[in-house]
Nucleic acid binder design. Structure first.
Lengths: 296, 296
DNA sequence: CCGCAGCGTTCAGTTAATTGAACGATGTGG
DNA sequence: CCACATCGTTCAATTAACTGAACGCTGCGG
């Protein structure tokens, strides 16, 4: 990357104003600076961005492509700026958020003291519910939901896009070895989270597509932590979102079973949903940032 | 935004190298430049990014936050750079892609001549299938799939996150006015795409959550364009992805019915899926870019 | 058909940023 | 416990970038 990032906003201004003079006026800098910046950018990229005469200006195909990416760079920069500006403003006030039970307990709760310490002036109100989106318009500023439901004027940001993995306790496995084959794996599954406990769950076994019946003869509960607790106590094998078993896999209280079986569904995706990206209060910003960091 | 984008890579280098001297060595610039850049960035942001003595260096909470966003800015810049570098390399060779039937016909096909003109040396092979992901590892370089299935080492990029909307032909509506209420709407729906034709489809009516039965007594077909053709010829009301009825809504051959009913499902999301973001050939890059532009 | 308004480029003077060496500070190994 | 190695900062000399006026070009209206 041999080009200067500072030339990117200049280029965007030129494209959007349809000319260097307009861009110069917008940026409040002499047009010669704009001209130099564009020339430098083109030289560094090795591509003609704008086909320009002294009177007409049209964007080239390469310029169009670069413009789209330039917009995304600037969008990211603006977001970074808004975040830091929010941090400086010392966020305060009431912030209501809706969180799903398992996410709140596992991911948010352990980090809540740190959040309180960082932003003591934020009066945080957590509402534990699995149907947070419905409360968005009236009662809460932000909701974390399972899945990626992206709706009209709502903005969704994926927090965790983790995959499912089959786990069991070591002593269960010692007593009940799991043989090869999908049917053998299936026979060890006693309990499953409701959300992905359907009749035909698409999976891949060593690259080969197949389906797994997680409905017939299996108990269901709508909380992955309950499933985890059961499996920890020897309730066979169960598919669980990887981010809810990370600690257990590390300390050895759970082990992965048949890692060659990968699930194609996105049952464990968690998104933060809020109303508008633009008019976001500093406190909502820092909380979204907190969630992003907590979900890493 | 009063800070310079060019200082962002410097900051990232300092964080990752754990010090200014290391960052200076990495960037191949004098350490005084690095020191100045960090000081300037901190001043412009109005925030302390790094708490540093002459021998120890620890990142502040604000610095951590800014670092995450800085990474994203640089990621975007790198992608832009790679794209342009790909364009310069004059992409050539065989490129196999898997596309779903409706997407190929409606979005890709009309723009195919433009793609051929832009990249005559790319030998494009399109495979029309609804199960493109399964072919990813062996037969195709990229697959467009309905939904957002994001799996392990696959990278998915959302092309269209359009919502569903209920449409009908104007003359059908003239002969059969649609009354208020969800049940009234329901009675006009004769045909529905298979994917979202389930028993309990979550919807919102003027902000109120409800469900709609799109299974009982409704015909189904796994191609939204067939549904559209039927509706154009007077087959009642049907929910369709907005991007497949955009032209018809504009020219008046279809009209929106009950726009106060919004669907919460993401049936019409289309993603491009490929294996690795890093080792992407120029031809795959330009095709992804082409898809992104075509989907706008 | 031509003059002019307005565009992007060029260039020399000016200003700001960059730089390498010197400096003070600090943790560590002997 | 202290000397040293190493780190980040500072500062003046250097260098590169920026700027504003002048220039040349072009398309449009008269």
């Amino acid at each position: 990357m041999r080009w200067s990032l500072d030339d990117v906003p200049v280029y965007v201004a030129v494209v959007e104003q349809g000319g260097m003079t307009g861009a110069a006026a917008l940026l409040g800098r002499p047009k010669s600076s704009v001209s130099t910046a564009i020339a430098r950018l083109e030289k560094a990229l090795g591509v003609r961005l704008l086909q320009r005469n002294s009177r007409s200006q049209r964007i080239t195909a390469e310029g169009e492509t670069f413009y789209r990416h330039a917009l995304m760079i600037i969008e990211q920069a603006r977001e970074a700026d808004a975040i830091v500006a929010g941090l400086r403003a010392d966020p305060a006030g009431r912030l209501s958020v809706a969180l799903p039970p398992a996410f709140c307990q596992e991911i948010v709760a352990p980090r809540l003291p740190a959040f309180r310490r960082a932003w003591p002036k934020i009066d945080l109100r957590i509402l534990i519910t699995s149907h947070g989106v419905e409360l968005l318009r009236e009662q809460v500023d932000m909701a974390v939901v399972v899945g990626r439901m992206e709706d009209s004027d709502l903005v969704a940001r994926v927090l965790i896009a983790g995959a499912l993995t089959c786990v069991a306790s070591p002593d269960y496995l010692a007593r009940n070895p799991v043989a090869d084959g999908l049917e053998a794996l299936r026979s060890h599954i006693q309990l499953c989270e409701t959300r992905y406990g359907s009749k035909r769950v698409p999976v891949h076994v060593a690259g080969q597509a197949a389906t797994l019946d997680l409905e017939t003869g299996i108990s269901h509960v709508n909380n992955p932590l309950v499933v985890r607790a059961a499996v920890l106590n020897g309730a066979g094998v169960a598919p669980l979102p990887r981010h809810y078993v990370r600690d257990q896999l590390r300390d050895g209280s759970l082990v992965e079973v048949r890692p060659d079986v990968t699930f194609d569904i996105e049952a464990s995706t968690l998104s933060a949903v809020y109303l508008s990206r633009r008019l976001m209060s500093p406190r909502t910003r820092v909380f979204l940032d907190f969630l992003t960091e907590a979900s890493r």
